[in-house]
Structures are given as structure tokens and as C-alpha cells.
Design a protein around this nucleic acid. Structure first.
Ligand SMILES: [Mn+2]
Ligand SMILES: [Mn+2]
Ligand SMILES: [Zn+2]
Ligand SMILES: [Zn+2]
Lengths: 138, 138
DNA sequence: TATAAGAATAAGAATCATTCCGATTTAAGG
DNA sequence: CCTTAAATCGGAATGATTCTTATTCTTATA
């Protein structure tokens, strides 16, 4: 993922390319790890001292909708965001030490659905995250 | 699960049996479905008009630690609580309509760990919930 | 280049679940 | 009954996220 292809996909979706929007993407690309909304705001304030939380969240929601970033729900309920390296639906192992993530090879839902068998339940959404420490942080 | 066996386990754990603690257990048993902290507080205020949120959360956390209740994390980030019908670790299908829950037969984690194979990652915790509509609510 | 329309933003208030605090009360054992 | 740690109260504080209104950009089109 690079700035160019992300911008291309934003434009294809009919969204404006504003300086703050571009900067948020650049910050996420430059950092490589998952960042909280607050961290993104602080990084953004380097270039734009008057930027607001509202702008950060609005853009994060947009980028998430377009599947350009992954939103990771943390143990404490907060969210962290990172550039999406894949196009398909997937989950993460999240390192609580360094913030690195590993991607879970397969979503466990299909297997469970098969196991549930007869159970009639219309699935709307699901969440699955694993928290711990990567090799380097143990 | 009945009040008696829950009280027995609280006492075995060295915890006092206070009127509010007992009432919270009774409310969860009587309702059968998962309740938010606010709903529990409101029900509790029927008997104890001056009870506080602090008391509700303190007791819910205690009951959860003792595995007497399950805390379900909802889509919106809030939590709901219900009497734990099983002693082992498990997850839930949560009906967004009626609040009913179905228990997932198996935790997907062991299978994933095997699939991950060589990955060295010290797991601290994980979350897995499925949201949707049960047969009656579809 | 000028204009218009809609998208995006700023600033700060509001929300809402949850936690924290210091003062007071209470359950349970001896 | 006494003692003491545990539990509670009342309300303030927290912190992430959302909302509101006025204002400013972007982009397309004339
Ligand atoms: Mn990912
Ligand atoms: Mn359960
Ligand atoms: Zn999945
Ligand atoms: Zn599990």
C-alpha cells in the first residue's frame, strides 16, 4: 500500500482529497503500527495546529468504510487504526508491548457456522481479536 | 444456577454477602437475559433507592472474576451481564433483537493456535462475539 | 475567471459508560 | 458486644467519541 493507490481509491469513491485527509494517510503509512485517534491528532498537529478530533474521526471512519484501514478494538475499549494490508476480511493478533500486529490467517466464523449446523441465527457482525506479546516483547 | 449455589461460591471466595450483592444476583437470575449496568441499577433502585453505580460495577466485576456471570461486550462498546450457565471458557451469539444469547460450542482459539504453528506469541486475552438475530427476531 | 453546491472543517459543548474519591456504614468473626 | 476489613454512598472526574453550528474549501461548471 502506498499513498498513490490509496488516493486513487479515495477518488474512485467520489471523495475529496483534502490536505488533512492526505496527511492522516501519510502518518499511518509512515508509522507502520496501529495508532490511536489521539496519536494521529498529535502527529497531525505538527502540520496543522488547529486540526480537531472531529476531523480525525471523520476521516478514520471514511477510510475504514473504504477498507483502506483496519480498526483494531483494544482491551480497554478504545480503538487503534492502521493501514490495511489486505483486501479481504481478517482479524489480528495485537502485541500489547510494541503495537505490532500479526494477521490471523483465517476468520474462525465459517467453521463455527458449520459446527452450529441447525442453529438459525442471522449474523450481522462479529469481532475477534487476540491480545498478547510478540516474540520480541515477551 | 440458583441463588443458593451462587452465595455458597461467594462465601467460599471470602466475600461478604451484602443485601445489594444478593439483590444483583437475584435480578440477573430473575431476568434471565443479559442486562446493562444501567438496567441493573434501575431494578436495584426498586429495593434500594440510594444505591450507586459504583456498587453495581463493583459487584459485577466481582461476580465476573468469580466466573458467576458472563460479561458480553456489545457492538456499541458497552457491556451487558448475565448469569453464567457454564463453568468453562466460552463465547456467545448475541441476539440484537431480544437479547437472548446462544453459547458457542467451542472457542476458536485452539484451532487458530495450531494453524499459526511456528508463530511465537504469548496470548494474554482474546475476545470473540457474534451479533445478529435469533430465529424469532428475524 | 467567477460562481454555485456540496463536502469538509473548527471549536467546543455534549454524551455516556465507567472509574475514582473521601467519608461513612456494615457484615462477619472472635 | 467489638473490631476490622470490606462494602457502600454521593458525586466528581475521566476519556473516548459524537454532535452542533458557523465557516471554509474543493471541485465542477459556466
Ligand atoms: Mn489487517
Ligand atoms: Mn455464557
Ligand atoms: Zn471474521
Ligand atoms: Zn475463547
Amino acid at each position: 500500500m502506498d499513498v498513490g493507490s490509496i488516493i486513487k481509491r479515495l477518488e474512485a469513491g467520489g471523495h475529496k482529497l483534502t490536505p488533512k485527509r492526505r496527511a492522516i494517510v501519510e502518518i499511518l503509512l509512515a508509522e507502520g503500527r496501529h495508532l490511536s485517534a489521539k496519536e494521529i491528532l498529535q502527529a497531525l498537529q505538527g502540520k496543522f495546529p488547529r486540526v480537531s478530533f472531529d476531523t480525525v474521526y471523520r476521516n478514520l471512519h471514511l477510510l475504514e468504510e473504504m477498507k483502506l484501514i483496519c480498526a483494531l478494538e483494544m482491551q480497554d475499549g478504545g480503538c487503534r487504526y492502521q493501514i490495511n494490508l489486505r483486501d479481504d476480511h481478517h482479524h489480528h493478533w495485537v502485541c500489547l508491548g510494541c503495537g505490532q500486529t500479526l494477521e490471523v490467517p483465517e476468520c474462525p466464523l465459517p467453521v463455527l457456522k458449520k459446527a452450529a449446523g441447525a442453529v438459525k441465527f442471522k449474523i450481522i457482525s462479529h469481532r475477534f481479536e487476540v491480545y498478547g506479546y510478540c516474540e520480541g516483547c515477551q
